[in-house]
Structures are given as C-alpha cells and as structure tokens.
Design a protein around this nucleic acid. Structure first.
Lengths: 207, 207
DNA sequence: GATCGTTTTGCAGTCACTGCAACTTTGCAG
DNA sequence: CTGCAAAGTTGCAGTGACTGCAAAACGATC
C-alpha cells in the first residue's frame, strides 16, 4: 500500500463508484430516470455494464448512492455519545450528523436527486428496501443504549421512524427547498419524539 | 347489471384477481419468491402472463395483494369518526379496522405471506413503494380532520409512521406469532402516539 | 519481471414488464 | 335472438435489468 494508507486500487475503486453515482444522478435528472439505461450510465462512467453491477446491486441503489459504510458509521456514532444522552437523542443526532456530512460532501448531487425524486417519489422508498442490514445495525445500537433486549419493538420502530422522517423531509424539500433538508428532518424527528397523539396546532411545525 | 349490483364481469374479475394473488403467495411460500416466475403464477391461475400484468403492476404487488380500494376505504373511515375523536385516534382505529378485516378475510394468505417475508423482509418495504397514491389520500384525510394545510408535515408523518408500524409489526409477527398482528400494530402505534423520546422500560411494550 | 490476488470485461442467458393489435366475452338494446 | 359496443384477454415482439461464468487486464509483492 501507499503512504496514505489508500492504495491505487482503493483510489480507483472510489473514483469508479463516484463516477457511476454521478453519471446515474446526472443522466436521470437530465432525461428522467427510466429514460436512462444502465448501458448509458456505464458508458458515461467509462466502464462496462458488468462493472456497474459489481458496484451497485441495482440502478435504484446507484441513484441514491447507497453507501455501505453509512450503517456502521452511524451505529458507531450512536454508541459514541456519552451515557447522559438518551437513546432517542443519540439516534437523532447521529442522523443529523450523517445528513450534514452528506450534504457537505455532495450537495450538488442531492440537488439533482431532488429533481428525480420529485418525479418519482417511489424511488426513495425503494432505495430503503435494500438497507435492512443497516437498519438492523442501527436498531441493535439503539437497543444496546436503551438496555433493551434485541426483540423489543422500540429500537426497530425508532429506526423505522428515522427512515420515514427522512423520506418525508426529502419529499417536502423537493417541493420547496427554502428550508434546509437537515432542518426538515430534525422537525420530523421532533414530532416523532413528542408523540403523534398530540395534534400540532395550525402554526406549529413546518407550514 | 345483475340484482346483486355485481355483474358477471365484476365477479369474474374479482375471482381472477384473487386467484392470481393466491397463486403468487402459495407458490412463493412453497419454493421461495424468486424461484417462481410470473409465467408459473399465471399458469396456476389459468390466465396468460399478459393478464397477470393487467391485474398487478408487478410480481411484488401480487404477493402483497395490493388492494386498490384499501386507500379510499381507509380515508373514508378516517373521516367517518365523530369529531370528538382526535386525528391520531381516527387514523389508528382505521388502520386496526382494516387489518382486522383483512385478517378475517384472508388469514390463511397472511400465514403464507409470513413465510415469504421471513426470508425476504425487503419485499414488504418494496410493496409499500407503489402505494404513494393511497398514502396521499390518507394524509389528506388526516389533514382535513386536523384542520391543517396540505403542506403540513404532520399528516404525512402520521401515515408514514403507520406504514412503519405495520412493517415492524409484520416482521415481529413473522418471528413469533404468539401475539396477533393487530395487537402488534396497535402496540407500535401506541409508541408512536406517546412519543419516541421517552425510552420504554425493560418490561413495557412487547418483549 | 514472474506471480498471485483483485478487478474488469464480454457473453450468454433469464425474467420482469410494456405496447400493440387481434380476438373473445359480456352487457345491452332493439 | 341478434347485432353492436365496451371491456377483458391473449400472443407476440421487444426492451432492459440483472446474474453466473470464465477469460483477460491490472495492481501489489517479492
């Protein structure tokens, strides 16, 4: 390996993955998701179709840019907060941190994705279908923090709520991005935190 | 039309749809979801492959038995509760009523689906991807009840939480069906209602 | 620069899903 | 009963996502 700890191979892999992700998002935003074939995406990224599928299990995954490290990273974050922080807070802050990082690293991609998701909101749901593994990791982390058995419903519900919050936030953000995505997610999680039984007043929460 | 208000045509359609749904679930439970082709399903139900796709937009949909009337029906239910019932309660009871009805009508199908979903939990998520339309209906109904503008986050979050609750409940139920599915969903909604900020104690909620 | 492990690639194949243009069935009116 | 229109079914040809496999290209290592 090289001095940086990242070999040429690793660098190339990262670049290829990023190129495929970018190509997918760019082309989909340009002509509409299903008027773009994987063949075109691969061509744009200068690799073969087969290579595309070595990186992403599906076209959907490439559009969202599913990051296999996101799950473990968030789980670590959850466990890293001091014990005084409640499980809910730990989870909430982890989600927000992840989103902030992601937007800092790839804000441009998300602006394009927004265009696509405005036309096809279902893609966002589908993208979450393959993340059962990550959700399990997060749920386990939450369970550990909360001192609950793995079979308890709470951790899974919290994580599922997080997904839902994210989905709703993106949908709203796609319609009107005058508020940052992070804030919208935070708002949604806030509502889940205080409980949905309480109907918000006409002027609470986002308009 | 006939005396019953349901013509021969309508009856045949219902029977075909049901046959396709049953065939899909039965075969998938028997040999595993992706070792069953649409061709086999169509053959089992005695119709052409093309006809399968006239009834269901995808194999996924057929497995879950996506009912196009479920959305409108639940929306109606939500609006039918007296004004003294909170939006949350109205939604919750609608969900539970729907599930109860469904289990009464097709408990056997759900027992088979359970087998499939145990192997492939992602199918449940994917099945919800196509229900954006229904979710919109429900969210609008909730918004009306709550007197909130359509752009408010609350109704969409509540509906998304419902989906999440259902998904988690089915997953748990698939692992251990000593508790009824309805109760599990109710429990999950209860948690969402009171708020996730409060960490449940080691012995609250389902184990 | 020979060797070994990893990644890329092409290829052949399967299967979900679509549009279209017959064809059949049902509902209804005369 | 008959004929006609509307609705439903079917086959067919085509597209495109995705997979397994085996060969080739490439990068790391000695």
């Amino acid at each position: 390996m090289n001095q940086s700890g990242e070999s040429l191979r690793d660098r190339k892999k990262r670049r290829t993955r990023a190129a495929l992700e970018r190509a997918t998002v760019r082309l989909a935003a340009e002509r509409g998701y299903d008027h773009v074939t994987v063949e075109e995406i691969a061509a744009e990224a200068d690799v073969s179709v087969r290579t595309f599928f070595n990186y992403f299990a599906s076209k959907d995954e490439a559009l969202i840019g599913a990051d296999p490290e996101a799950g473990p990273r968030m789980a670590e974050r959850i466990l890293a907060f001091p014990g005084t922080v409640t499980p809910f807070e730990a989870y909430r802050r982890s989600v927000l941190a992840e989103i902030t990082d992601e937007l800092n690293n790839a804000r441009d991609l998300w602006l394009l994705r927004k265009e696509v998701l405005m036309q096809r909101p279902d893609l966002l749901v589908r993208a979450f279908a393959n993340s059962a593994e990550s959700e399990q990791l997060l749920a386990d982390a939450v369970a550990r923090r909360a001192g609950l058995p793995e079979t308890h419903a709470y951790p899974r519900l919290l994580v599922a709520a997080g997904s839902a919050a994210f989905r709703c936030a993106v949908t709203r953000w796609a319609r009107d991005d005058s508020v940052s995505l992070g804030e919208l997610v935070d708002e949604a999680l806030e509502l889940f935190g205080t409980g949905l039984a309480h109907t918000p007043g006409r002027h609470e929460g986002g308009s």
